[in-house]
Design a protein around this nucleic acid. Structure first.
Length: 459
DNA sequence: TGTGCCGGGCT
DNA sequence: AGCCCGGCACA
């Protein structure tokens, strides 16, 4: 009766139709749906059948909840990366605390077995019955991913789509795991690549792969991890004048404030044409009150407006009321670099050029301070011109990418710096060796095989 | 001690 | 250029 459900099931429509999640329909019916190529991937396979993600359009997104076979049983996992080329998915198994790499076919979005409660203990019990339940499910999923990623605007209208995503069926076929592929790591921890202003325009601009329509799931899940919530951040400007600290919401306002209240007092003609006010305010960010998006357990900064935690009031540096070298801000700025990326408050170091940069201080020295959360926003092209428009060298890119682990040691690192310039910081990502194991060395990327810097699991 | 990877040698 | 490995540095 069912017309060759293979395609149908693969097609998003098919997925939508088969609402009673596959687990209800002969979950172990491995043969019929399995790809003709048969026993594809080794021991883990068991050709889990219907819920497979096929290669066609399933782009798993970081943070997406999936199921994989691990140690013979099905485990819940969270997608870390999805390599389209190799059709491999890096999955984090929170339960086991492991990262595993699975073929796309070995990953599915619905549990294959009717979840025996004991086995599914780690999963969110996904009710798959009605559309309403789907909402709950999606809420659960979203919350799950929220725990990893602060930014989740999950507009309700997407829920249905997501539902389909998670009910996707289809067999898969194995693609050889060849050389290094492209890993869709949308969340990109610290990835300096400026992610486009996501949320507002997200709905459409969000890069639908041209090939397969219906990549809605991408849209849906496409927020994972530390994707910056730029949208949810307001910018304000704080006066750094001693004992002032006034906060205004516009540059113009703050400048006017400084000019009139402070600089005006000093002397009229002392403020040169070079908009000296710039030196006396700093940009601060306010997270918009979006309780949902905050990962549970993450402490809230006591005050929404937060500049550098330590009072930014100039530490007695004042070279005579702000004439030539306003030096006050940056030291605090450097140290104020948020130690946890999740904290989205941050002081723009855009004024760090105020730092009394030692004559030959290498450009990198200062800039480490604040690029952790929103690389793009910290590097304002505008100011960059004055100070930090440093051409980003490869080494620095690395630094940016690896800044998170390094964070804890604030800045003051001239000795290390020299080292960084020469040697790559060790990445946190699982490398081929770790992922595949030595015994599968042939699956490593060539670089790993040659003991070079891994090209597949870039950090 | 295991791992990532730089530097350099060999083909 | 591709491949391999000694050895260093880091976790």
């Amino acid at each position: 009766m069912l017309p060759k459900s293979r395609l149908g099931k693969r097609s998003p429509l098919g997925a939508l139709v088969c609402t009673s999640c596959p687990s209800m329909e002969s979950p172990l019916e491995t043969g019929s749906h399995g790809d003709p190529e048969g026993g594809v991937g080794g021991p883990t396979m068991g050709s889990p059948g219907p819920q497979h993600l096929s290669r066609f359009n399933n782009k798993l997104l970081p943070g997406q909840k999936v199921y994989v076979l691990c140690g013979g049983r099905e485990c819940t996992g969270v997608v870390e990366q999805h390599n389209h080329v190799d059709n491999e998915v890096a999955v984090l198994l929170p339960v086991l605390g492991q990262h595993v790499l699975r073929k796309l076919e070995d990953v599915w979005t619905c549990p294959t077995v009717p979840p025996p409660p004991h086995q599914m203990s780690s999963c969110i019990d996904v009710p798959r019955r009605s559309a309403e339940s789907m909402d709950e499910m999606m809420a659960a999923l979203v919350l799950t991913s929220l725990s990893c990623s602060p930014l989740v605007p999950s507009p309700p209208q997407r829920d249905t789509v997501t539902g389909s995503a998670s009910m996707e069926c289809g067999g898969g076929e194995l693609s050889d795991s060849g050389s290094s592929g492209y890993w869709s790591c949308d969340h990109g921890y610290g990835s300096p690549a400026p992610s486009p202003p996501i949320t507002e325009t997200e709905g459409h601009s969000l890069a639908m792969p041209p090939d397969e329509g219906l990549d809605m799931e991408q849209v849906l899940f496409d927020e994972p991890a530390p994707r910056k919530r730029r949208n949810s951040v307001k910018v304000a400007y704080r006066c750094l004048w001693p004992n002032c600290g006034k906060i205004l919401k516009s540059v113009v306002g703050i400048k006017r404030h400084i000019r009139t209240l402070h600089l005006g007092q000093v002397s009229e003609h002392e403020r040169c044409s070079c908009s000296e006010e710039d030196f006396y305010y700093t940009e601060i960010h306010q997270r918009e009150p979006r309780p949902l998006t905050r990962p549970l357990g993450v402490p809230t900064p006591s005050t929404p407006w937060s500049a550098s935690p330590s009072s930014p009031s100039p530490t007695g540096v004042g070279p005579g009321a702000g004439g030539d070298s306003p030096t006050e801000v940056s030291p605090q700025l450097s140290q104020s670099a948020p130690s946890t990326p999740d904290f989205f408050w941050q002081v723009h170091s855009e004024h760090s050029y105020q730092v009394p940069v030692q004559v030959e201080a290498p450009p990198v020295s200062v800039s480490y301070s604040c690029h952790c959360t929103t690389p793009t926003s910290t590097l304002h092209p505008r100011q960059g011109a004055s100070f930090r428009v440093r051409s980003v060298s490869v080494g620095e890119q690395w630094l940016q990418q690896h800044s998170a682990p390094i964070r804890p040691h604030p800045v003051s690192t001239s000795p290390q710096r020299s080292h960084w310039s020469t040697r790559r910081i060790r990445g946190e990502a699982k490398k081929c060796r770790k992922v595949y194991g030595i015994e599968h060395r042939d699956q490593w990327c060539t670089a790993c095989r040659w003991k070079k810097a891994c090209q597949r699991f870039l950090d």
